[in-house]
Design a binder for these strands. Structure first.
Lengths: 277, 277
DNA sequence: AAGTGGTCTAGACCACTTA
DNA sequence: AAGTGGTCTAGACCACTTC
């Protein structure tokens, strides 16, 4: 194994038709693109320890020959692994295995339900309130709405195996909100339901800090008012760049942690002063 | 402007010699590489609003012609901006401006001193303790040390304009620790000093969660014992993949927030259950 | 001196969006 | 049907690391 692809011929790739919608980068690791299949194969080899703890990868040229692809395609595959923090890359020497990546797809990150299930936990949720009201200035800016536009506001409690974990407040723009408002109250995953209705999530900006529980938080999570909570705020946009949600999740301490990989080449993380509210 | 480069001829790039060490991706945005200069120019144009709030960028081919480079180079430049969350990218339509990126270099993120100065604040620090002792199992694994190896442990208070902000506990492997131990106690930036001694930081894994202040934290930060703190743990490696520090920063609430951009194409962020200690 | 990754080019075809 | 970004190829030269 890892000498060639486990199940694919790779040379001929004409017949690619019967694949459903196949979100690129979605749940299935082995995307249709050649470089994604190479990346998936290399990831498998690395995480199973085929190159050792801090071992060196074969040269790009050698990998190109092994997989029967051009060097450019190999480099595209390796760029994926580098961004995930799996391997280093520097001029002059072969790539070195950095660590065993935390594989977590974009959709797992946005959907509490999807994330919970990927861990083998049973996700639950209860819609506490849903209302429609005029957007304030901050909401109009975040969701890029015109003055006078309305937003849909939801408050939901999220549980893992019936244990309260997080309170989620989400602001939806009208075109998304109307879909949310139609949902039965017992639908577990809003995100997945929206996707079925053509609302796609492709980009998100996250901000993480600490806040204290207000009355609602305390009541729902079963903590004291004023108790510390880990907060993740997130603005998500669709493929056209249009904002589709502005959400604020508040986790009980000790239930979750957020991880980021970062390098000279790719730095998506930043630290800000004075968390504005 | 933005039609061609502001100060560079771009076609001839033979003489590139008198540039110092020039860390790639370091403080200077316009790196020596062609695609970095294109990226810097496009970033400038986007953040100054040349393409509007949610405007569309020119086609890749048009940009290639404008800058006098190949389409591949333009795509390399655009990949940088996409990773920063500045623009979208989907097949079939032109790229769309997503937002005004939070530009923060890798070195600003790792160095409290560098970060503070980039905000115009006056960073301060006080070394509370420095000791050498045998590494425990967790430390050996994180820093990839052999059994019996020793580590250097520092405890430092960090201030902005003399206001306590953060307590930093760092574990250094021997080859870095000996350098830290030689430093005068009043050196402001360990990170910058280490860089001058040939210790380079190129990759980091960050984990963010909430903890409660212990006795030392409370005394140094002036908060109550048990008060919530925002914690960032970080393992940093050098270009060869060797760990150079394992650090744990604890911030007073409200002083900082961490931000990450994320997309279907590039996802460096993940959420974990049960923050292990 | 040899090997390796970083950068750049030129051209090709395809999948998708929009009109 | 036209335009656009996504993917892939083949080849070239360079900067850097290692021996």
């Amino acid at each position: 194994m890892t000498e060639t692809f486990t199940e694919n011929a790779m040379q001929q790739d004409g017949a690619d038709g019967a694949e459903g919608q196949e979100q690129p980068g979605g749940s299935v690791e082995a995307g249709g693109a050649l470089y994604r299949r190479v990346a998936a194969d290399l990831r498998e080899a690395i995480t199973t320890g085929a190159y050792g703890e801090a071992g060196r990868l074969p040269a790009e040229g050698a990998l190109a020959e092994r997989y029967g692809v051009s060097r450019g395609t190999v480099r595209q595959a390796l760029a994926v692994l580098r961004a995930d923090g799996l391997v280093t890359s520097r001029r002059g020497t072969r790539r070195v295995v950095l660590g065993n990546a935390r594989v977590q797809s974009f959709s797992e990150l946005l959907s509490f339900t999807h994330w919970a299930r990927s861990m083998g936990e049973e996700p639950g949720g209860r819609l506490e309130s849903l209302l429609r009201r005029p957007a304030d200035a901050a909401e109009r800016e975040q969701l890029r709405l015109d003055p006078g536009a309305e937003v849909y506001v939801t408050l939901r409690l999220r549980t893992l195996s019936d244990t309260p974990v997080m309170v989620e407040r989400t602001i939806y723009p009208p075109h998304v909100g109307v879909l949310v408002a139609q949902l039965p109250a017992d639908v577990v995953s809003h995100t997945e339901h929206l996707r079925e209705h053509g609302i796609l999530f492709t980009d998100a900006d996250h901000t993480i800090d600490v806040v204290t529980a207000n009355g609602d938080d305390a009541r729902l999570l079963g903590c004291r008012r004023g108790a510390p909570l880990l907060r993740e705020r997130r603005r998500t946009t669709d493929p056209t760049g249009r904002p589709v949600e502005w959400s604020q999740d508040r986790y009980l301490p000790g239930m979750v942690a957020f991880s980021v990989h970062n390098s000279l080449a790719t730095s998506a993380l930043s630290r800000h002063a004075r968390a504005d509210d």
